[in-house]
Amino acid sequence: MLSKGLLMQRNLRISMFLIALITISAALSAADEGRLKIATTSSLYDTGLLETIVDQFAEENSATVQIPSHGGTGIAIAAGQKGDVDLLIVHDKAREVKFIEEEDGLERRCFAYNYFYIVGPEDDPAGVTGLNASQAFKSIMEKGLSNPDQVKFITRGDLSGTHSKEQSLWKAAGYNYSAVNTSGPWYVDAGSPMGATLIMANEKSAYTLTDMSTFMAYKGNLTLVPLIEGGDELLNVYSAIAINPEKHPGVNCQLANQFIDYLVSPECQEIIGTYGQEQYGKPLFFKGEGNCEVMGCSAEECVVPTQAGCAQA
């Protein structure tokens, strides 16, 4: 049996361990009050822009900001619908509008934009250079149907913001998407995130639709080139939406609104407008400020501070 001395030592160690445990959990739960959880899409997250903004915001406001969800748009919206996060930053207008209509979110704020690219092999077998986006898609499909070995298109196939944009382009080109989807071996459904899709397109010398920022990040490893780089059809608008505390009690609405207000502030807009200049030679994003018409966002939702309060039910 343990001697009295050893017994006391052991009890002392156990007590210290318990105290540490209690202190840590207290600290952790205290952190919840000043904690903001954001769900966003991989295409935005992977550029590192959000983290830069988050670091600034966290410092200036002594808050803890985390981005636990940065997969596809679908999972981000799902996280918002379950109230697992406090703020959504995504780039799919149709779904954003629905989100707010269903009272999961408070209001939409456009704050930045860039463009999608249609990228493909340098020799451009489908001859899309100089066309606009929907014309390019038409050409790719026609040439792909007749010559699938030469012309292929890779889709993300994951209902992401990028995939949604792609579907609307097929529609604009005059096709029914489900027809495109099953029309032949030229159209490859990769069911993958953007980076993996780019790699596959690279390996197969195929065309694909990509957001500008992911492409810039992967460019060094790819032989694909951007063939169509701008135009309204390829517009990519990012918006922020705070989760509605009435429908999802417990979300940190105050901090979410504060963050959105920061996003639209001149200081942050400047950060957004110059991000990536050094590393890639040109910025990866355009600031929303002053570009409301380009983005197709109404005045109430374009780069202005939040209006809706955080009334709880």
Binding site: G71, G74, I75, G157, L159, A190, S192, A196
Partner: peptide, 28 residues
């Protein structure tokens, strides 16, 4: 499966990669 197969529908899509895809789409 993901890196070598690429999760291509009707060709290299398997259970595990499908689970990853459905999750990222929010179809929990």
């Amino acid at each position: 499966a993901m890196m070598i197969g690429g999760n291509i529908r009707d060709y290299t899509r398997v259970l595990t990669t499908s689970i990853a895809l459905q999750t990222s789409m929010g179809n929990l």
